[in-house]
């Protein structure tokens, strides 16, 4: 888009068009159709992705009133870090990520390793059985888990009562609300992770295992020495993806706890949502989302580097 406009102005400035620029312009003219093919995507991409991303940074330095816009520098960033809700949300989101991402990866890896040696039919069956619970929207999953965590009639209190424990007010008290959400994240099967690991395992050269057999390695040794190291790129991919997803945890919060009790289950995205669309403080919300963006990027880069160079 930018290049196109640029060359247009060059062409309009006069008859004497400098030769290298003329060739660019000619090549553009030759490829008119290519730009036409790109046009629909570029329009929507520019209006609803490129401009919003750049604008988000600008808004984070603004106070937007009804009639005027003031530039306030880093005020919203200081405000965000000084606010107890945001700090609670930051801490909760970090904790949630640190607990659930490794759980997701380990469960996925172990289940996939168990499914892999089975026959084609059993593989397909288990793959579907573990993926099926995750195809429904998180809204539905959150609704049923809220019901299962119900204090008086929920399944969980019945199950722990069966083992002689007193009923727990899972989502209703500060000490158990966030752990309950973590348990839920861990018990939802890592369907996507299992499928991706299985596909990666099928790509491992079987002769490696045969060679290990000749050396007398047992199944566990082969798993530790061959399977896990060769799955490293896949693990990296899954770690980064699930970290990004985990930092964006929102649906469970708004459907199950609303961030409470107190701030005990506030998360970054839930705070951003409330700041922007309940308090209509767009400047602060943008600053918070820019912080979220940098945290996610930071984590992704660190994970990428550490898992990559370890080889």
């Amino acid at each position: 888009m930018a290049a196109q406009q640029n060359s247009n102005t060059v062409n309009n400035t006069g008859e004497k068009i400098i030769i290298p620029k003329k060739t660019v312009w000619m090549r553009m003219k030759e490829n008119k159709v290519a730009y036409l093919f790109l046009l629909p995507k570029l329009i929507f991409f520019t209006v609803f992705m490129l401009i919003p991303i750049l604008w988000a940074f600008v808004i984070s330095f603004q106070d937007r009133g009804v009639f005027d816009v003031d530039y306030v520098g880093f005020k919203h960033y200081f405000e965000a870090f000084q606010s107890p809700i945001f700090r609670a949300a930051l801490w909760n989101t970090l904790l949630y990520t640190i607990v659930t991402v490794p759980a997701f990866i380990i469960t996925a890896l172990i289940i996939a390793s168990f499914i892999y040696p089975l026959g084609q039919v059993s593989q397909a069956f288990f793959r579907s059985a573990f993926y099926l619970p995750t195809v429904t929207s998180m809204v539905i999953i959150a609704m049923v888990w809220r019901w299962m965590y119900n204090y008086r009639f929920g399944l969980f209190n019945y199950i722990i009562g069966f083992f002689g424990f007193e009923p727990v007010n899972w989502l209703g008290q500060t000490s158990t609300a966030l752990p309950s959400l973590m348990i839920m994240a861990i018990l939802i099967p890592p369907g996507a992770g299992i499928i991706i690991y299985l596909a990666a395992m099928n790509n491992i050269n079987p002769s490696l295992y045969e060679a290990a057999d000749i050396d007398g390695a047992n199944a566990f040794q082969k798993w530790i020495r061959i399977t896990i190291p060769l799955l490293k790129p896949t693990t990296l991919y899954l770690v980064i993806l699930s970290t990004i997803g985990s930092f964006q945890v929102f649906t469970q919060i708004i459907m199950m706890t609303g961030g409470g009790p107190g701030y005990s289950t506030e998360t970054l995205v839930h705070v951003i949502y409330k700041t922007a669309f309940r308090d209509f403080n767009f400047g602060l919300a943008s600053a918070q989302s820019v912080i979220l963006f940098f945290i996610i990027m930071g984590f992704a880069i660190v994970q990428f580097k550490s898992l990559r160079t370890e080889k």
Partner: peptide, 17 residues
């Protein structure tokens, strides 16, 4: 390069648009 950017970053500007 926009593939990895979380949806939340664009929330407010897209809303204004």
């Amino acid at each position: 390069s926009t593939m990895m950017i979380p949806e939340q970053v664009t929330l407010v500007p897209t809303f204004i648009i």
